[in-house]
Design a protein around this nucleic acid. Structure first.
Lengths: 219, 219
DNA sequence: ACCGTTATTGTACGATCGTTCAACAACAAA
DNA sequence: TTTGTTGTTGAACGATCGTACAATAACGGT
């Protein structure tokens, strides 16, 4: 019949998706908007346009904007840690090889990207005044620290240092700080140094920690 | 007369100030709002309320909000570099003493303050998408880098290392990255380490650079 | 083919945003 | 005391913000 034809011929105006799939899409859109527009991209309308949905849908899947942003932060953190962990797992068994894989993954795409780092900075800027983001930070950052500390612990054991005298805690803090600082600096001025040099700086730092410290000239 | 009394008795509704003084007050109010409310504090109404002036005044002294924020960033940068420079100038003549003064000033008030660091992070988050802030960054960051590089150059000279083989550029990048990273990490989780430990980490890094590297256990 | 569930839409609302501008008034100079 | 300059006010504008909500329609189950 004619009516039947009309119904069959018309494409659906939208596609229903499972909540978990739609949530994932909205989170991806949020991160994409952050990359493109920075903090200004964190608006309901910008994000929903990026995701190709209407303005009302976000509040159907998330209680409010802050929770969406926090979920995006959680996903962003998770992707980073998972990627680094995979890089380490794909490397050889020697501790220094595993550390090198970790550092090279840290300072190469997709992590070392000006847009990606700018996203981190925006998240950090939100941290102090957003409870949801603070909760995510506490829940996810420990995974990153555990990964770094594990790599350092392997190195210390290999170098046959007395574990007690080596301040593993401080070493992990220093290495993560150096990495974060290099990320930040490369983000602000990408021309100042090359990723390869960042890896080198980190390796020298770790070498000096282990007392193999050949010093600045030895490389 | 009554009229005369009335005129004399009434306090002025506002006080005219020289443009440079008012601009300075608006810049100070901007930074204060950033400390208190983060990125959300960067609104014309919040800032003008903090400064105790009307909403219209900002656009009389600054062409637009971005320029005010950029001016605040310039002032913030200048204060930091000036403070660090003064700390170095007040120290002894020995290069390692001067470096220590620099590091201790870096990791003590007013620089090492959770609010202050949060302000930095917000500025960094604006960097990618704000031309005025990019201009300020290029103009002022070199002063900071020059200061760090000068301190390192003194140390290298004292250690009698062949200047050519020492990569002063990379050393400065590494040290500033380490400092920035430690700032950032302390800002996100102030309880994880003490400022004293941050100074120690930086000094060990520099020592390893100069080939005096006693390693991680030597302290 | 119909129904029920619910993902999705899009308008509407009140709040707040940055900026403009005519009117006002503080203060120095005449 | 009067005048001129200009720093300052505050209402008004249009745009955009986050959220609420009734209406709509996609799609699996019967």
């Amino acid at each position: 019949m004619a009516v039947h034809q009309a119904v069959v011929g018309r494409r659906p105006r939208f596609e229903r998706q499972l909540p978990q799939a739609r949530r994932a899409a909205l989170i991806a859109a949020t991160i994409e908007c952050l990359k493109r527009y920075g903090h200004a991209g964190l608006s309901i309308r910008t994000i929903s346009a990026q995701a190709g949905v209407s303005v009302g849908l976000i509040n159907h899947h998330f209680p409010n904007k802050d929770e969406l942003v926090a979920a995006a932060y959680r996903h962003f953190n998770g992707e980073l840690v998972e990627g680094l962990r995979a890089a380490v797992a794909g490397a050889g068994a020697a501790p220094h090889e595993r550390l090198r894989a970790f550092l090279e993954a840290s300072f190469s795409p997709p992590n070392l990207d000006a847009d990606v780092l700018a996203v981190w900075v925006v998240f950090w800027g939100l941290y102090r005044h957003s409870r949801p983001i603070q909760r995510v930070q506490r829940a996810t950052y420990s995974g990153y620290v555990r990964l770094v500390r594990g790599l350092l612990a392997e190195l210390v054991q290999e170098a046959r240092l007395t574990p007690g005298r080596v301040e593993l805690r401080l070493a992990a803090i220093g290495l993560t700080s150096l990495i974060d600082g290099l990320w930040l600096e490369w983000c602000l001025e990408p021309g100042k140094f090359r990723p390869r040099e960042a890896v080198s700086l980190c390796e020298q730092w770790v070498a000096s920690l282990c007392g193999q410290g050949g010093g600045w000239n030895s490389r």
